[in-house]
Nucleic acid binder design. Structure first.
Lengths: 377, 377
DNA sequence: TTGAAAGCGCTAACAG
DNA sequence: CTGTTAGCGCTTTCAA
């Protein structure tokens, strides 16, 4: 049992027998050998440079550089669980509303060394589930940018990985949201300042959280300013929905309209114009979202812009905080401020109130003011 | 040295000492123990079911299921190098042009069990490089959906990972492209059939490959149909560029205009209308790309739609073939067919040719025909 | 068909 | 500050 003295000690096996530095990408072992240090030192030189002698670190980096060594994130992820990846789930990547949000999230993630996995649901709950399912083991956290999932499904998800919801309020799930109250106040103030006394709200989907918020805020602020409000709808949150709203629109009643979103506003304007109405001559129109297209319509649409980019970056920022160990309660929900872009679809109401339905008149060329594009927001 | 008979054999060390099945997610070892098999058998049951007895496999899957076991893609990636991830690099995720392409790529990847990493360059070459750099070690291949990189940089990249370029022709790098010739032929045929005899081309960036293709094809097909062509520009590929083109536009010369892309066409129309021109009364306008907005302008824009979705899915399809070992030469470049959407911005030329600059007239309400949205393409 | 054992490339105690 | 030594969870020869 006891080895005889002259018996050679077990071969030191200093560094375990690794595959020779064949071709393929160099590893820390290759660098270690070339630099004459232990592999763990190389590892430290890259992952915690402060734990290594400055000179040694420099030498290692030099050797690594000319060997073309690059840390392998996968190999690093295995022992640490830190994949440096987060997922961004959207219900529909095709929806113009989300571009800036995605970009804001992307940029914030990249800045912190995180890579973004895109999980597009393509409008299907099943695809969303499946996509998330596949992605979960790989990511450290998830931003739910828009989702069709139920509250309970989201809570479930939040048990497996840190989750931040965007523009959705679910108890126990931290989120970042737009300041819907402020956005409506901006719309109302603008119209009121112009002299409008009645406003019609083109309602969006009843299930949409934002829709309820908008209507409630509208009543509140309009009331404060002595403005009469009414609501028609609900309509689909699309240009088609807006067109239907135009057909329903009681022209004599309101000199101003606030639509659930830009798409509805645009569809509404187009249809109304085809009926012979003048905008903003007969009716002023305000939308929400400031989608790219809203600066390209005739007339250009006055709209309230959500802080999309900020929404995206804040979501990621908070998510990374969560991942870093912050408690969900610490990550306070934050309502981000909006901004109104005044363009050509709003003006003072006509002094003589008569319906455009009585006497359709030719339109005037679109005027241009404040035609800022979304990207400058 | 030779162990005495009664000496116990080295402890079997059957399965190496792993951390007890503490909390956290179950591993193949947990499943193996619960199912009474070796960990390697569990591994096989999931990665190559055909190499395992059907019953055993079934039992293992059952045990795994109720343990809640799920294969860990990261752990699998380490020994095999198969991460099941591909990267999709875009120069600007905010560009409406790419939505459907991204979605097509995403869907194709998901279908084959691949996850898509989004690398948005945010218009910066530096960010693009850096993003790609970070992502390379993690992905099995890359789709370059739009990129600012130089040809040589791309060839470099292609040495590290399989690469498919979209709408870009680089020797030695397989690609998928739109059939630019066909798309221009569709535009010319449409205008010719309407009776136009002269066409003005609003040129895009000179560096853009598509721009050269379009102009060349235009000359070719217009020639075949006896149509006179001229070109003005170059202009930025934006609505602003189109507006500048409108200022330059020699109204008397052409009854029809083909723009480099939809954005240019839209900017052109708006500015021309503000000058008092009627579209399509005075000038017919055709764009390229069929971006979302083109169905929402007044008048709605006639445009030639690239097969974006197909472009995306084909790119991924070919990329996976490459990853699967297909030789680059096998993956033949393919020019995908386009489709023209005839809307309200084109009509037969006015019988009496006079310049709208002489006598601006009030516009008519937009007509509606073929106002299909991009998503239905 | 199944089991044992050696890694994939990197991190992380624990000594020294 | 640096080297040694176990693994992270899975795949994969090689034997049995």
């Amino acid at each position: 049992m006891t080895p005889s003295p002259e018996q050679p000690a077990r071969p030191a096996a200093a560094e375990p027998r690794r595959r020779s530095s064949a071709r393929s990408t160099p590893t820390i072992y290759d660098v270690a050998r070339a630099a004459g240090v232990a592999s763990s030192t190389v590892s430290r030189a890259f992952s915690r440079p402060d734990r290594v002698n400055a000179e040694t670190a420099a030498r290692i980096r030099a050797v690594a550089a000319d060997l073309g060594y690059r840390t392998n994130p996968l190999a690093r992820a295995l022992p640490t669980g830190q994949t440096s990846m987060i997922a961004l789930a959207t219900a529909d990547i095709t929806n113009p509303y989300y571009f800036e949000l995605i970009r804001g999230a992307q940029a914030a993630a990249a800045e912190r060394g995180y890579t973004t996995l895109l999980a597009d649901a393509q409008e299907s709950v099943a695809i969303e589930r499946e996509g998330l399912e596949r992605v979960i083991p790989t990511v450290e956290g998830i931003v739910l940018a828009s989702t069709r999932m139920s509250d309970s499904a989201i809570r479930m998800l939040a048990k497996q990985r840190p989750v931040i919801a965007v523009n959705r309020d679910i108890s126990d799930v931290p989120n970042v949201v737009t300041d819907h109250a402020m956005s409506m106040r901006q719309a109302v103030d603008h119209l009121a300042d112009l002299g409008h006394r009645q406003i019609t709200y083109l309602s969006g989907p009843e299930a949409a959280w934002a829709n309820g918020m908008r209507w409630r805020s509208l009543r509140l602020y309009a009331g404060e300013r002595g403005i009469h409000v009414r609501r028609i709808g609900p309509y689909a949150p699309t240009a088609g929905g807006g067109a239907r709203a135009a057909a329903d629109f009681p022209a004599v009643r309101s000199s101003a309209v606030i639509a659930y979103n830009d798409l509805v506003a645009i569809g509404f304007m187009r249809r109304l114009i085809s009926f012979g109405a003048r905008i903003p001559g007969d009716v002023s129109v305000v939308g929400f979202d400031n989608i790219f297209t809203s600066a390209l319509t005739s007339p250009e649409l006055t709209t309230v812009a959500p802080p999309l980019r900020t929404l995206g970056s804040m979501a990621v920022h908070n998510l990374l905080a969560l991942i870093g160990g912050a408690s969900p309660t610490t990550v306070r929900p934050l309502a981000l401020p909006t901004r109104i872009y005044v363009r050509a679809s709003t003006a003072a109401p006509a002094t003589r109130r008569r319906s455009w339905r009585d006497a359709p008149a030719p339109r005037e060329p679109a005027t241009t003011r404040g035609n800022r594009l979304p990207s400058s927001g």
